[in-house]
């Protein structure tokens, strides 16, 4: 799959979240890795922990919440777990670029586009303000902004959603990061604009040779941009492998259900929608057995008590956390 060694390696990451009301574990023993030039998509529903997973270790958490992170996150030969705030701040916007779902709330409404981009360039590339502003123009050209000189003088509210997201991307890549984390970068956008942003992200990744972690719930976006895929459910990785294999031949019952639920061209109007029964579990303490057991057609008694861990399936490149689908591969190894 990946020829170069990974730039980001996450091992057994657990994140406990403490709020005034309760203690939760939104991320439960998650492992993955991304290499330069590669895109990992993390797919999951709301409450699956996909956002906390990426942002908590970078020190991006709302006020009023305390976290405890255990496990290991190695980025560019540095350990992020336990790193102090000052060092993390240098990484954010520096060698790690971040794109948020809602560009309007991530941008400062009272400052021009020029200032907002230049600020990042000044901070992380130690440029003078004139150099940084020149760089801002280059960056807007890089994100294929129409009429970039005029855009520099504008304020975020004067731009459309698609243009704002381009500004966000320009800020994220200002310091030529080695890793780009994109949290639902196209969810708030219209489908015709979404296609433009995806193509832009693909192009930038190639040019800058960045590793990219894309958090999304849209399998279409995943298919278009990612090379590998981690499917999360209730804070755990259910299936992990190359996009081609996981999307076309899913192994885990949850992944199967998700992909099966996507309407297909041959579905007739008025025909019933395919989906999963039941509801995803509410975020809380770790679930003793398999988190998906209540909604799973194949569940057996042990699924309720023993938590299945990620293990290779018959296709060695795909890992799935399900003893039922893994049984065949175990038989293979034994034989």
């Amino acid at each position: 799959m990946s020829t170069s060694s990974p730039i980001l390696t996450v091992r057994d990451l657990c994140i406990d979240l403490f709020t005034a009301r309760s203690a939760l574990r939104p991320v439960d023993q998650v492992s993955y890795s991304v290499a330069a030039g590669e895109t990992l998509a993390i797919v999951g529903e709301s409450g699956s922990g996909k956002t906390v997973l990426n942002f908590a270790p970078l020190g991006l958490m709302p006020l009023g919440v305390s976290i405890h992170v255990s496990g290991s996150i190695r980025f560019d030969d540095k350990e992020l777990v336990g790193m102090n705030d000052e060092a993390l701040r240098k990484l954010r916007g520096g060698s790690i670029g971040v794109i948020f779902q809602d560009p309007m709330s991530a941008l400062n409404p009272a400052r021009t586009i020029r200032r907002q981009i230049a600020e990042v360039a000044e901070l992380h590339l130690s440029l003078t303000s004139t150099q940084a502003e020149a760089r801002a123009l280059d960056l807007l050209k890089m994100v294929r902004m129409s009429d970039p000189e005029a855009r520099l003088r504008q304020y975020p509210h004067e731009l459309s959603g698609g243009l704002r997201q381009r500004v966000m991307i320009a800020i994220a890549i200002a310091a030529e990061p080695k890793l780009l984390i994109a949290d639902e970068p196209t969810t708030a956008l219209d489908v015709t604009v979404q296609a433009q942003i995806i193509s832009l992200l693909k192009d930038l990744q190639k040019r800058l040779n960045m590793a990219m972690v894309l958090i999304t719930h849209d399998m279409g976006v995943v298919a278009g941009i990612a090379s590998r895929l981690a499917v999360m459910y209730a804070g755990r990785v259910m299936e992990y492998g190359p996009v081609q294999t996981v999307l076309t031949a899913p192994r885990h019952p949850y992944t199967m259900g998700l992909i099966d639920a996507i309407p297909r061209a041959e579905d007739l109007p008025g025909s019933a929608f395919r989906g999963l029964p039941g509801m995803p579990p509410v975020l809380g303490p770790p679930i003793p057995g398999c988190a998906f057991v209540e909604r799973c057609r194949h569940a057996v008694a042990t699924c309720e008590t023993t938590r299945p861990l990620l293990a290779p399936t018959a296709d060695r490149h795909v890992l799935a956390a399900c003893p039922i689908v893994n049984r065949s591969s175990e038989a293979l190894h034994a034989g």
Partner: peptide, 14 residues
Amino acid sequence: KRQLTAALWTREAA
């Protein structure tokens, strides 16, 4: 109090 709660959660060996 919350840390204490979390400390009681089991963590299986990977």
